[in-house]
Design a protein around this nucleic acid. Structure first.
Lengths: 187, 187
DNA sequence: GTCTATACACCGATAGAC
DNA sequence: GTCTATCGGTGTATAGAC
């Protein structure tokens, strides 16, 4: 499994880079082929559905990565406050300290967003529930826990976006530090 | 299909809608023509530089609107805390209570972002300085004032982005309410 | 100012050899 | 699995009549 998936993982990594920097509509088959070192026809061997299938696969993959790298940490066997910190650390790693964007937000626009927007929304609502539950464990009442969950996710994505607008990757790291300060203290 | 006597503002409004929903690369001349009711060739009369000029004009226009509608309120002759509230209200209006996206963030990606990213970054750094100055007036020390400025802008854009991810426009309004609670109290 | 008609490059996608 | 060659369609952009 690991051997078989290694080359496909490499392929996905190269394709992901193109979609991240160009968006779905901006990513052309020529550029995708060049980035992978394959011919255009070869890409259709791996993705018979063409560009749209590539994006769909990468979207599912990005959601899985975000879940495993960040949100899954909220379910570990640890004190709630510690889980929150580890979640933020995971998100930081997912976006490579603010230097990489989140592919889910890129693909949530335009054609792909229209097709998979409902699924994305369901996923984020689930994550929000999970996060709010952890805040409740720290002592927050349900309503406040939900507000805290919303504020945290909005903060993470907001700093990521404004770091790009400012063209200052450090902006993200500093923001994340501030978000952590607002969290319940570690035991 | 719309009115025959269209002003330039009307034209820009129709073009803006297309770029907002499709992005720069996704907006085609055919769709831009259809949205305006003009032929493709007629668009080149108004924008000799074609699609790229349309985007450049709309980007400048969006920056000006954001400045006038939101950030300019930070310079009014009022108590600092009141100016902060009015700034947030202005931003809310700029994005139509979370139902419209900010064109600057849309065009900051892809081709246009590569060409105008430095200008956009300068603009946002200026706005950040302005905002931090107002926080200083409310009693914050420079370092904290800057953090507050960053947190506020990240919050505004973060709630705007996550509202779209959740497909819940109300998510934005609730988030804005929370942001206001963290502000210095009104006199 | 707006139109019709058109140029021509590139798009996504397929056929078929190897 | 990868390639070369090529398809039909659409993209941006222009020419020129009205």
């Amino acid at each position: 499994m690991a051997t078989k998936n290694r080359s496909r993982d490499t392929l996905l990594t190269e394709l992901r880079a193109v979609f991240l920097s160009r968006g779905y509509e901006g990513a052309t088959l020529s550029e995708l082929a060049r980035a992978t070192g394959l011919g255009k026809a070869s890409l259709y061997h791996h993705f018979p559905g063409g560009k749209e299938e590539m994006a769909a696969v990468l979207l599912r993959d990005a959601v899985a990565r975000l879940d495993q790298t960040a949100f899954a940490r909220l379910k570990e066997q640890r004190p709630a406050a510690e889980r929150l910190h580890r979640f933020i650390d995971g998100f930081e790693r997912y976006v490579d300290n603010g230097e990489r964007n989140c592919l889910v937000t890129i693909l949530a626009q335009g054609t792909i967003g229209e097709r998979h927007g409902a699924q994305i929304a369901d996923q984020f609502r689930g994550w929000r529930q999970l996060l709010a539950g952890v805040f409740e464990e720290t002592g927050d009442k349900p309503k406040r826990a939900m507000r805290q969950a919303n504020a945290l996710v909005a903060g993470l994505y907001g700093y990521l976006l404004t770091a790009r607008l400012h063209q200052e990757p450090q902006h993200f790291s500093r923001g994340i530090k501030a978000l952590k300060k607002n969290l319940p203290e570690l035991p």
